[in-house]
Design a protein around this nucleic acid. Sequence first.
DNA 1: TTAGAAAATACGCGATTGCGTATAAATTTA
DNA 2: TAAATTTATACGCAATCGCGTATTTTCTAA
Lengths: 83, 83
Amino acid sequence: MELTIRTAKQAGAAIRRIRRSQSLTQGDLGEKMHVRQATVSKLEAGEPATQLRILMDALVALDLELVIRPRTSTSVSDIEDIF
Amino acid sequence: MELTIRTAKQAGAAIRRIRRSQSLTQGDLGEKMHVRQATVSKLEAGEPATQLRILMDALVALDLELVIRPRTSTSVSDIEDIF
DNA sequence: TTAGAAAATACGCGATTGCGTATAAATTTA
DNA sequence: TAAATTTATACGCAATCGCGTATTTTCTAA
């Protein structure tokens, strides 16, 4: 299970998917992160002005990590993601 | 070449390493990203309030992508990173 | 060792964050 | 389909963003 992220929107969508897979509400996640449910909502919406700190805190709370690597060729799912 | 990121500081350090490996100055990268050199400086310093948008723009400019995945066990390099 | 380049920092600015507190809207479940 | 839960949105606030413009401070070659 590995999600490729190229936009803030994709990052938010990934967080949402994973949060749900762990049966957590935005409120639950917010509690773990010590931020409000509204802040989680904005993060998941892919608001590009969200602070980096919020993303990192979410990753910790969901027991995830980030990897930075060279861009791989565009996959079909990436294209679908555009629409 | 794959960098594991768990903190904003690590994200900044990774961007800096990769930028240098591509022989770019902060000014060069800023130009590609349409942000100021000062903004790149803050990103690389790992300022946690940096906007997510800035990180994503840097990734695009450096031809990188992000991966979100479950946390792997702590590696030696992670520990070294603490000190 | 010093000139030149690169990076860090500063000031004032408008914009927007995340905050507390609430509520409206949407979704799920009984 | 009604009730309950979850998510999105709102207001006023202090804080901080990234901006333009510039100036240190630090690093790197000649």
